[in-house]
Design a protein around this nucleic acid. Structure first.
Lengths: 137, 137
DNA sequence: TCCATTAGTTAGCCCTGCTAACGAATTATA
DNA sequence: TATAATTCGTTAGCAGGGCTAACTAATGGA
């Protein structure tokens, strides 16, 4: 319980710090997050994207509509199952995500510089543990 | 540099998970966060609350209106400066906040229960590193 | 064939962020 | 002192992001 409380607090403060430069991309956090799934995990159906982001299909439907409207993702029909749609990132989308990511890294770099290799390793491991734990849960 | 991005992603997903039980309170995250400021830092004016939460005054104005409508906060006129309003938490508000906080931490703790001692130690250290680093930056 | 299931969309609700524009109160200044 | 500038908060209106309910279309099984 104690670790959970401190982790929660740390996550909140970390995100507040990191959220600022993301607004420069002109895209909200949900779109950037969905875009990063497409970039790092490849094309996905809407249901898969919704599950990965832990939101309901109608929510993801609107997020994807926004990405498409902004030219960051494209929609293709699935040949085998006409109910499914295949969502993939465009060159513009990949560029925008990488730029947003670079800005975010730079913002955090200012606060993370000064940490030694051991401390960075701890953060790296923590990120891995959190992601895998949440993926299982 | 890779670490910052992964940490950001982990924090997003962690908070998204922890936010789930908060919906049981019937209040959104912004209201709960503002309420916690009132509980732990005492009564504040609207401008002070907005600054503490890093949102603009119109946003905080609506959040406070919601808290008042739900009977979680009360508004008093400032005797010295009639432009200012003094916002304080009610007994109901304090009760609701503590319950929501307990639920949130518990939900997070539940997802961490499958982890071994070494993994928990990594998360503990990571929380410490993040908090102290952000406090300095 | 007919019907249940599945995938995605649409409509409509609420919350939360913003800017612009406003009214009221205070403070500074001519 | 009268007036102008500033400050505090609110209102209006926009967009994003979450949800449920209800719908269409396609699939697949009985």
């Amino acid at each position: 319980m104690e670790i959970a409380g401190r982790l929660h607090s740390a996550a909140i403060h970390l995100l507040r710090r990191a959220a600022k430069p993301d607004t420069l991309s002109g895209q909200g956090p949900a779109r950037l997050s969905a875009l990063s799934v497409l970039v790092f995990a490849g094309p996905r159906t809407l249901g898969e994207l919704a599950a990965a982001e832990r939101v309901k299909p109608p929510t993801m439907s609107r997020i994807v509509a926004g990405l498409k409207r902004s030219g960051l993702a494209r929609i293709q029909r699935d040949g085998k199952d006409a109910r499914r749609i295949r969502i993939s990132v465009t060159a513009k989308g990949e560029r925008l995500l990488q730029e947003a990511r670079r800005r975010r890294i730079r913002a955090l770099a200012d606060t993370l510089t000064g940490l030694n290799a051991a401390a960075l390793d701890v953060l790296d491991q923590a990120a891995t543990i959190i992601e895998s734990t949440l993926r299982r849960g």
